[in-house]
């Protein structure tokens, strides 16, 4: 897909560090390769492990799997194979959503919140939301549920929660926050109902977040970088409208949620959601710093909680970067 690397570039890289040419196929420029080499040296020193890591990188293994982690907001999220690596776009909108929650719920009526995250993967979205908003929930309660159909993802979410919160022993005492993980397939309507009957604290879920697999199979070869294609789980990547269909036909139709934020990769997915939501729902699209459509959000204007301020903040949050 990408043009061949010039031999002169490889030679130039080899003069700087013998491992540098190995990083070029993935990094493309010497500058970026040096940056990655620096991070790898920070992790592995200059031992034999560094060479092994660079060889892996040469075979397009994602840097996050080699180093085992990815910074996500102020959290450090552990990454393992078979679980999708958190993307910066997701980081951006999650932080934005957290700020929107902080700004609109801190001043207004104090209330208990329930947030549910679908297709959690590493658990990065719910964990970042907890970390950013935890100060609001000393008296009021926050319940966060993280749902995924992969056992490996569930294990990793638990690990990430423990590393980022449970290590600090006073987290449980200081904040009124509960975090649970659930393993089931959300496309299965019966299991969703079962989950709802057991886990609903408020009448409805306040915010539903999701980063579903949204790459249509037809784009997989054409538009997906080889590193993603070869090493990240197809389970977390391939999909088109299934999850947006599920949003409309299960979560909204059975009136389980008051608002949602779904990540997406294409405007056709926005159109699908906007055309199919009931008329009492207000929807909108946000763009990331790279000016690509990234999220579709919506809220029920007849819901007891007023979400207009929250989602106005969410929409405006990116104004610095556009």
């Amino acid at each position: 897909m990408s043009p061949r690397l010039l031999p002169s570039l490889l030679r130039e890289a080899a003069l700087i560090h013998r491992c540098l040419p190995l990083l070029l196929p993935e990094c493309r420029t010497i500058e970026q390769a040096r940056q990655e080499l620096k991070w790898l040296i920070d992790e592995f020193g200059s031992s034999i492990n560094l060479q092994k890591a660079c060889l892996q990188r040469n075979r397009h293994v994602p840097l996050q799997y080699i180093l085992g982690s990815q910074p996500f907001g102020s959290l450090d999220i552990q990454c393992r194979r078979h679980v999708l690596i958190p993307r910066w776009e997701t980081e951006e909108w999650s932080l934005n959503l957290a700020n929107a929650i902080k700004e609109s719920f801190v001043k207004k009526d104090k209330k208990n919140l329930q947030i549910v995250d679908l297709c959690s993967g590493t658990g990065c979205i719910p964990l970042l939301l907890i970390n950013e908003t935890k100060k609001l929930f000393k008296n009021n309660s926050l319940q966060v549920d993280s749902i995924d159909c992969s056992q490996m993802a569930i294990n990793l979410t638990k690990l990430n929660f423990n590393l980022n919160f449970n290590k600090k022993s006073n987290f449980k005492n200081d904040y009124n926050i509960s975090f649970k993980t659930h393993k089931f397939n959300i496309l299965d309507e019966i299991k969703v109902k079962e989950f709802i009957s057991k886990n609903l604290t408020n009448q409805k879920i306040n915010i539903l977040t999701c980063n579903p697999p949204y790459i249509p199979p037809s784009e997989f070869i054409k538009d997906v970088r080889s590193s993603v294609r070869m090493y990240e789980p197809k389970l977390a990547l391939l999909g088109n409208l299934e999850f947006y269909h599920n949003l409309i036909e299960t979560w909204i139709k059975f009136d389980l949620i008051e608002s949602f934020v779904y990540e997406l990769g294409d405007l056709s997915q926005v159109t699908y959601v906007q055309q199919n939501v009931p008329s009492n729902w207000i929807t909108g699209v946000t763009y990331d710093s790279n000016s690509k459509p990234r999220c579709v959000f919506g809220y029920n204007k007849t819901a007891p909680t007023d979400y207009s301020a929250t989602y106005k903040n969410f929409l405006n949050g990116l104004s610095y970067t556009n």
């Binding site: 990094c27 970026q32 940056q35 990655e36 991070w39 994602p62 840097l63 996050q64 999708l84 690596i85 993307r87 910066w88 776009e89 697999p213 949204y214 790459i215 784009e219 538009d223 997906v224 970088r225 590193s227 993603v228 990240e232 977390a236 990547l237 990540e263 997406l264 990769g265 294409d266 990331d288 790279n290 690509k292 990234r294």
Partner: peptide, 9 residues
């Protein structure tokens, strides 16, 4: 396309 399509560092 960004998003899930790439895992840039």
């Amino acid at each position: 396309k960004g998003g899930q399509h790439v895992n840039t560092t």
